[in-house]
């Protein structure tokens, strides 16, 4: 069954049509990369999936039921910026989701329950390479580290769908490569369905199982107002897998999800190991 089905969705701002006739079925566990020229409504589409925006026409189903029209814990999100809370430490940021869940009134947990949550958060943070930075504030982390933190923060609530809005767009190329490896690893381990907006084609084909292209089909200036962008291509990504010594071990048990470029080695954005 589809995790998300988008049926004939239109987005309009006043008389301006931004997106039209968008139909998309997203399988559970898929990694959808959305690309397209700027201003083609990629981000509007993601805001729609978040529930920040409502479709002018059409409907969106999440696991077969109409999707709530406000953000909720079934849809996690990582933005390019402002995804983590500056007033909470690394640990506090990851604890926030579970704490909100366990205590509706105070949004905080104490004692044994808190220790259990901390343990879970610590394990996840170690996995994303932040195990040594638990008590730092986001401002003390590099951009790449902040995005790792944002991923951990979103994933600990175990959302059905993870929405990524150009999450790695502001990072240096080297750091981006490292975080791609992490992203693939987390995606395989959690089995979460991912929808990622990016303007980096290489990234889209590297990470995605499908690459969805949004574009305006009518390009005359006189038609810009009344004709929006729509899905112009929906490409399934098949990866060739060549077993060999360079294999990173993750891809070995899943031949069509091989990752030919990214290699998992400690990079300069990784915390220096402390002994």
């Amino acid at each position: 069954m589809s995790a998300l089905s988008i049926r004939n969705v239109w987005i309009e701002y006043g008389s301006q049509v931004v997106l039209e006739r968008v139909n998309l079925e997203i399988d559970a566990g898929a990694f959808i990369a959305i690309v397209g020229p700027s201003g083609c409504g990629k981000t509007s589409f993601l805001r729609l999936l978040l529930g920040q925006e409502r479709p002018a026409r059409g409907s969106i189903l999440l696991d077969g039921k109409p999707m709530p029209d406000e953000p909720g814990p079934d849809r996690g999100v990582v933005f390019q910026r402002y995804s983590v809370f500056p007033h909470l430490t690394v640990l506090g940021n990851v604890l926030l989701g579970p704490e909100l869940q366990s205590s509706p009134l105070l949004g905080r947990s104490f004692g044994r329950r808190r220790r259990a949550l901390v343990e879970r958060a610590h394990a996840l943070l170690s996995e994303v390479g932040l195990g040594d930075s638990l008590h730092k504030y986001p401002a003390q982390l590099s951009g790449g580290m902040q995005q790792r933190l944002a991923l951990a923060q979103a994933l600990i609530r175990q959302p059905r769908v993870l929405l990524l809005d150009e999450p790695f767009g502001a990072l240096d190329p080297g750091i981006r490569g490292e975080i791609h490896v992490l992203m693939r690893k987390l995606w395989k381990e959690t089995g979460v369905t991912i929808v990622m907006v990016t303007h980096d084609l290489r990234e889209a084909f590297l990470l995605g199982t499908r690459v969805v292209v949004f574009d305006r089909l009518r390009k005359l200036p006189t038609e810009a107002q009344r004709y929006g962008a729509t899905i112009s291509q929906n490409i399934a990504v098949h990866r060739r897998h060549v077993p060999g010594p360079g294999d990173d071990g993750i891809a070995a048990n899943d031949s069509d999800r091989d990752d030919p470029i990214a290699v998992e080695t400690p990079g300069r954005d990784d915390p220096t190991p402390t002994h």
Binding site: L50, P71, P73, Y82, L100, R157
Partner: peptide, 8 residues
């Protein structure tokens, strides 16, 4: 939005 997506 992020806080809401964490269930707040």
């Amino acid at each position: 939005v992020k806080a809401q997506s964490l269930g707040a």
